[in-house]
Amino acid sequence: MLKVENLVTKFGSVIALDGVSLSAQASKITTVIGANGAGKSTLLRTISGLEHPAQGIITWQGESIIAKRPEDIVRMGIAHVPEGHAVISELSVEENIAMGSLFRRRKFKSDVQVALDEAYQLFPRLLERRKQLAGTLSGGERQMLAISRALVSRPQLLLLDEPSLGLAPLVVEQIIDSVNILCRTTGLTVLLVEQNANTALGVADHGVLLSLGKVVADRPAAELKADAALRAAYLGY
């Protein structure tokens, strides 16, 4: 289980996260929703070690992960898929996926190939395009690739940042479905950041509403989805 308490992250004088507390229950999908600039991405980036918090506590399975480097946090079972289909365009699809399993090659040699196969099984389109450069993929395929790269590190917690960004609704649905299935079948814990609240709350167990760096609501997803007043106030519809 991931627990975040009173997290503050600043960029110079700008306070992006202003005392955020939340938790992600094991084997559940927790979604963080909020408008642009609410601090959603910063939250994930702080958890995965890309940003350094000014104060606060982050514990993962009882252990503090504050001040750890991103590469060590991955090794602890937290994989982060950053915003904007983060793949390396100059590398092939195969290489992009393999990258995520490099650090496991020595200790879990036999499992590496299994993990790669599972990734291709989840997104068969990537298998077809194995040899292509990632830069030639469509937006949806890139997102699948980024998720696959994260999955081959065999995470227990997946931090997913706006997978729907710039994608057609059908593709979004396909990707969200895959993540949902993964969570239900393998017991993966997911922390899903989304601007598209409806889609996110549709699959999530729990919802957290973020506004200007503060948590304004932290409830079961269904309840949050039903609260029209809250939605109107913070999400504008």
């Binding site: 991103p70 590469e71 991955v74 590398l91 990258m99």
Partner: peptide, 24 residues
């Protein structure tokens, strides 16, 4: 080699490399 891939990844995109567990 894997190490070579890690080096290319680091050169091209340090952030993604770090998130992939590569010790940059």
């Amino acid at each position: 080699t894997g190490m070579g891939l890690a080096m290319r990844a680091t050169a091209l995109n340090q952030e993604v490399a770090k998130l992939s567990g590569i010790r940059t």
